[in-house]
């Protein structure tokens, strides 16, 4: 009774609905979030039920959206902002990095900025340019921001609840190609901490770390490897800032091998930081260098090439084989 099967997009919708219902200070803001319910329908029906004062269609100006959300937060509101697509966040990047991230510290803690910025991200949907990017490292690099990404509907529901309750700004990356994937959502459960990684599959020979859209790929890779007699552990990172290095360390001390997978370019990405930290923490446990699988140092390619660019089952398994061959 407590659980209900729903798509990831619907889980976020339900989570926003719960938040609007329980906290009168919660606002939804963004382009087309009202009548249309957002281009992915994540905010479907919310304006109808909560009104235009709380579910706000904004002018088409991302910096303006985030900048006014900061002002609303200063007034005591808890805005949940939608950026329509990953590649459209950059007009707001200045407000996010220069203002939102630093304001709490500049005021010596006397003001709080509980703003959530939702960004549908990643590729795999055959979109046109600027609709398939994975800029999470650009935000995780900024002190003052927290950066998370759910991989499944249950996490999407609960992580959104926790992000909205957080007194810190949270960049909430939504894996857009998983929006329609269904899973059981337990709205009565007591969730674990927002920034704690989750063991998505237990294994003993190698650890795959992934988040958002790549968790599914890694689970598939682990299942394929199982058929070849290899036991792969999959860790769903969930949070890119802070990163739960303790859980990665615990897994690597067991498996002794680590491959990090994300859609974002490998160069200076989340995987680079994990590789450096885990090398430091687990130097004597590692049987192989930490390997990374991800995007290339090139603009996100046209849709007909994205399957070559995105880490798929084969590229993940190739890295698994290389690691195990050491």
């Amino acid at each position: 009774m407590a659980t209900e099967k729903m798509a990831l997009a619907k889980a976020i919708n339900e989570s926003l609905r719960t938040a609007l219902d329980t906290d009168p200070k919660v606002l939804i803001m963004g382009e087309d979030v009202g009548k249309l319910g957002g281009v992915f329908r994540v905010t479907d029906g919310l304006q109808k039920d909560f009104g235009e004062e709380r579910v706000i269609d904004t002018p088409l100006a991302e910096s303006g959206i985030v900048g006014t959300a900061i002002g609303l937060a200063l007034r005591g509101y808890r805005p949940v902002v939608e950026i329509q697509f990953d590649g459209f966040v950059f007009p707001a990047y200045d407000q996010i990095v220069t203002q939102l991230a630093k304001m709490h510290a500049r005021a010596l803690g006397k003001i709080k900025l509980p703003v959530v910025i939702r960004i549908p991200y990643g590729g795999g949907i055959g979109a046109v340019e600027h609709h398939s990017e994975s800029p999470e490292a650009l935000f995780a690099h900024v002190a003052g921001l927290k950066v998370v990404s759910p991989s499944n509907a249950d996490d999407a529901y609960w992580m959104m609840q926790q992000a909205i309750q957080s007194d810190d700004p949270v960049i909430f990356f939504e894996p857009k190609r998983r929006y329609w994937d269904k899973a059981e959502v337990n709205k009565d459960a007591i969730p674990g901490p927002l920034h704690k990684a989750r063991v998505a599959r237990e294994g003993s020979d190698l650890t795959l770390v992934a988040y958002g859209p790549m968790v599914k790929v890694c689970l598939e890779a682990a299942a394929a490897a199982q058929e070849e007699g290899k036991s792969i552990e999959v860790l769903d990172l969930r949070s890119m800032s802070p990163i739960d290095f303790d859980s990665i360390q615990a897994s690597v001390e067991k498996t002794r091998r680590l491959v990090v997978v994300h859609e974002a370019p490998v160069f200076l990405g989340t995987g680079a930081e994990i590789a450096a930290r885990i090398t430091e923490r687990c130097f004597y446990h590692l049987e192989a260098p930490v390997l990374r699988v991800g995007g290339y140092h090139a603009p996100y390619p046209p849709a007909r090439l994205e399957d070559e660019y995105l880490p798929g089952l084969d590229r993940v398994l190739d890295a698994v084989d290389r690691s195990l061959a050491y």
Partner: peptide
């Protein structure tokens, strides 16, 4: 950073 605060002011006023 020049001008950023005008948006904060506007958001605050919306509140």
């Amino acid at each position: 950073v020049i001008g950023s605060q005008t948006l904060h002011a506007t958001g605050y006023a919306m509140g």
